[in-house]
Simulated assay, not measured.
Amino acid sequence: METENVSTVRFFWVTFLNVLITVVEILGGLLSGSLALLSDAFHNLSDSASIVISYIAQRIAIKPETPQRTFGYRRAEILSALLNAGLLIVIALFIVIEAVKRFMHPDHVNGDIMTVVAVVGLLANFISAGLLHAGSRHSLNIKATYLHILADGLSSIGVVITGIILIFWHVKWLDPVVSVLVALYIAYEALPIIQKTINILMQAAPDIDYDAIKKDITSIPQVNSVHHVHAWLVDEHHTMFSAHINCEDIKLSEVEPIYRQISKLLQDKYHISHVTIQAECQRGINEKMFDIDRD
């Protein structure tokens, strides 16, 4: 679906626009002497790599499950999001280091060239962001790339404003200050993605109400308790859940309807994608819901 997967055509045009912006801004940055413009250019260069990585990851993620990959390849997009967000942090650090050097040794900046080039970059970034907007709401992978583009748009706005100011006033410290602000914004947007992707890769428990789940499951007739619970995310959309339940001493044929009822409950109410239940009679009946104490 187009809302979930960004088309090849859109990826192509976003990549083309970013490569074009990169070339124009590198030339403009060298001619104008603007660190902010060069920073924006390198950021756009990273966007191009990010877009290619995102596209490849998206194609890999839709491959079906195999005997070797029983959960499929969905985490390819999570790895891509982590890589892209990490790249943003590296770029932010690079910009800050260069900005500090400029503070110590300020250079003259040509505001006219800087402004014209930044306006071209700003327009191209807005077009690229529009092409990726729909997919960014459904995928951490596309969101990471989308944030690359938005950060570029914001930095381009900062460069435009800086260029206009420098046309009239030669404030040498303004260019590195804008560069640092852009770097801080890039890091601010990237860190939450890094945190979320690491949580998924570390199989952290999703944010669901386990006490409510226990109450709902044990309210089912012939289910006495729940223990040995595990829940984790394969990606940001697919939650896995497994648990042991203690039932009355009933036939296996009578347990199967309970399985179906629990699975439907967890899928409909808690949006859990895959449910695995093991029924027991007395074994583990006094165990806690989790193998370890929760805070």
Score class of each variant (00 low, 15 high):
residue 162 T to W: 06
residue 42 F to E: 02
residue 1 M to I: 03
residue 237 H to C: 01
residue 256 E to P: 08
residue 231 A to G: 03
residue 36 A to N: 06
residue 203 Q to C: 11
residue 174 L to M: 10
residue 124 A to E: 08
residue 31 L to F: 15
residue 128 S to F: 01
residue 153 G to V: 02
residue 237 H to W: 01
residue 13 W to P: 08
residue 281 C to V: 14
residue 115 T to F: 13
residue 264 K to S: 07
residue 239 T to K: 15
residue 146 Y to L: 09
residue 145 T to E: 06
residue 108 H to I: 06
residue 118 A to E: 04
residue 113 I to V: 10
residue 61 A to F: 00
residue 227 H to F: 01
residue 183 A to P: 11
residue 42 F to T: 05
residue 125 N to W: 02
residue 221 P to V: 03
residue 276 T to L: 13
residue 21 I to L: 15
residue 170 H to D: 12
residue 129 A to L: 06
residue 43 H to M: 15
residue 215 K to P: 01
residue 262 I to Q: 03
residue 294 R to F: 02
residue 81 A to H: 10
residue 196 K to N: 11
residue 253 S to L: 13
residue 219 S to W: 08
residue 82 L to E: 04
residue 196 K to Q: 13
residue 134 A to S: 07
residue 8 T to W: 04
residue 71 F to D: 07
residue 75 R to C: 04
residue 294 R to T: 09
residue 161 I to K: 03
residue 137 R to M: 09
residue 207 D to V: 11
residue 275 V to F: 04
residue 280 E to H: 09
residue 157 I to W: 01
residue 102 R to L: 05
residue 207 D to G: 05
residue 239 T to D: 09
residue 172 K to T: 12
residue 128 S to Y: 00
residue 137 R to F: 10
residue 76 A to R: 00
residue 262 I to W: 04
residue 8 T to A: 14
residue 242 S to A: 10
residue 19 V to R: 03
residue 214 K to A: 07
residue 180 V to Q: 10
residue 293 D to I: 09
residue 91 I to H: 05
residue 101 K to E: 14
residue 191 L to K: 12
residue 94 F to A: 14
residue 73 Y to A: 14
residue 86 G to S: 15
residue 194 I to R: 02
residue 32 S to P: 07
residue 37 L to A: 14
residue 146 Y to T: 08
residue 152 D to W: 04
residue 7 S to G: 14
residue 259 Y to F: 15
residue 107 D to S: 13
residue 149 I to Y: 00
residue 271 H to E: 11
residue 277 I to S: 04
residue 67 P to F: 05
residue 105 H to D: 14
residue 215 K to I: 04
residue 4 E to P: 00
residue 284 G to H: 12
residue 90 V to T: 12
residue 210 Y to T: 00
residue 147 L to V: 08
residue 167 I to V: 14
residue 68 Q to L: 15
residue 282 Q to T: 11
residue 137 R to N: 08
residue 9 V to H: 11
residue 127 I to H: 05
residue 136 S to T: 02
residue 171 V to K: 06
residue 18 N to C: 13
residue 125 N to V: 03
residue 207 D to Q: 13
residue 133 H to E: 05
residue 203 Q to K: 13
residue 112 D to S: 05
residue 245 I to S: 14
residue 30 L to E: 09
residue 282 Q to R: 14
residue 150 L to M: 12
residue 223 V to E: 02
residue 212 A to Q: 09
residue 128 S to T: 08
residue 39 S to W: 15
residue 130 G to C: 11
residue 12 F to Q: 08
residue 120 V to M: 03
residue 45 L to H: 10
residue 154 L to E: 00
residue 229 V to T: 12
residue 164 I to D: 01
residue 136 S to Y: 02
residue 16 F to D: 01
residue 85 A to V: 06
residue 132 L to H: 06
residue 93 L to D: 04
residue 141 N to E: 07
residue 124 A to R: 02
residue 119 V to H: 02
residue 166 L to N: 01
residue 233 L to W: 08
residue 135 G to Q: 05
residue 148 H to A: 08
